[in-house]
Nucleic acid binder design. Structure first.
Lengths: 223, 223
DNA sequence: TGTACATCAGTGAACGCGCGTTCACTGATGTAC
DNA sequence: TGTACATCAGTGAACGCGCGTTCACTGATGTAC
């Protein structure tokens, strides 16, 4: 009997929702992080207010002190996910040798942005899907919940900056520049979506990196 | 009072769920079509067993005579959507002039497949999202619910056939052929996803066709 | 330094909703004799 | 041609679930005097 009782309580015990103070401290942050965990595990639909409050060890309605609705929490989670995508891109950019000839550096920058995108999609498929879910019509964040990475640019802006370099280095004719974001983004986004949880998961997933590089070859040649 | 009562009953009256016979006739088909309508309007999540039975004018549990679960109905809807994508591709292929030189015809075939894909995505975003939803790991249909179009090939096979032509016509070196589906598919899929309901809906949606053609230029050059 | 009080972050209980699914049933249909 | 009966497509009622959200509340905190 006792052991049954214990085992029933155990699963929740990793982060015990017991609180000694009446006030929580930083419920806003805690709820956001719970939301991020939920999205990580199950994508946007898994971001559920009640579950977030449960994890925070707080009554369900306490969330309404900090978020106007479930949708507001979801938007905050989205912003965090977009910011993480930007960070992944920046990490790839940071690996580039700064002393490359401008043309090579420009090309490598575009690849780095794409590679960061794909890496993040594979490393965090749930958050990736949350960031770019069907109903996500805006990449813009808010002062409180920014979508930018450490460098201050969001993923779209990072891609744009890399493409600008391509023009500045004389690799891409200026008249091709407008709208180039859309083409490059489409290619990597499609691969990410098809691979992380779609019909190409099984056949392509394991070689995601190689296929991604080949895709980026295509983009580079085709742009 | 009366008018309130009437107005409350009105919304459902378009297709009255009244049935004069005890047996339905073809409930399987009717449920599938209701499911398709639901997916059309709201994507995969909108495919709800109870709503489908409601529209068929039948008790909720009657669905279980024909589908083992909600998931089974959803799979059938998916298959129908994939079949419609294939049909859209075939329609584009059918518009090609058959007397083109082989190389031109091959190139045009790949474009036609991509154009059909993008057209369908724009015309039926809900069904498109259902066909390629996150958890759709298989494009294969069943004898009862095929994913192929009138010509007998499913969308993936149609793309493969078009790429084969490219090799046969000497436009693409054979060693580039393996895996080419993934690259081409990724590009159009990404554009479709970003445009139909995502962050590019507003800026790009209206010029979907032109952007699509430019994307296909990129793919053609880059492959 | 101490006290009164406004502020506001949490609680507790409940609401209505819609879902997928199961149970025991009933009525129509088609087939065997 | 008529009847008994098996088959099976539907019904009716109910289940347990989990959700978002609202209400009136209570307890802790910080500030003004």
């Amino acid at each position: 009997m006792d052991s049954v009782h214990i085992s029933l309580e155990m699963p929740k015990s990793a982060k015990p929702p017991v609180r000694e103070t009446y006030r929580h401290g930083d419920l806003r942050r805690t709820l956001l992080e719970a939301g991020i965990d939920l999205a990580r595990a199950g994508g946007p639909d898994a971001v559920v207010l009640r579950e977030a409050t449960r994890r925070a060890g707080v009554a369900p309605n306490a969330a309404y002190r900090h978020f106007a609705s479930r949708e507001a929490l979801l938007q905050a989670v989205r912003a965090a996910a977009l910011s993480a995508v930007a960070a992944a891109m920046e990490a790839e950019l940071a690996r580039l040798a700064a002393d490359l000839p401008p043309a090579d550096l420009a090309r490598a920058s575009v690849r780095a942005v794409g590679t960061g995108y794909l890496r993040y999609a594979q490393a965090e498929p749930g958050l990736f899907r949350t960031a770019f879910a069907a109903s996500d019509k805006f990449l813009k964040g808010t002062p409180e919940f920014p979508t930018s990475g450490p460098g201050g640019l969001n993923p779209y802006e990072l891609l744009g900056a890399a493409l600008d370099k391509l023009v500045q280095a004389g690799v891409m004719p200026p008249q091709r520049r407008p709208g180039a974001e859309v083409l490059a983004w489409s290619a990597v986004h499609g691969l990410a979506m098809l691979v992380i949880d779609g019909p190409l998961a099984a056949p392509v997933g394991p070689q995601m990196y190689q296929v991604g590089q080949r895709l980026l070859d295509m983009v580079e040649k085709g742009l």
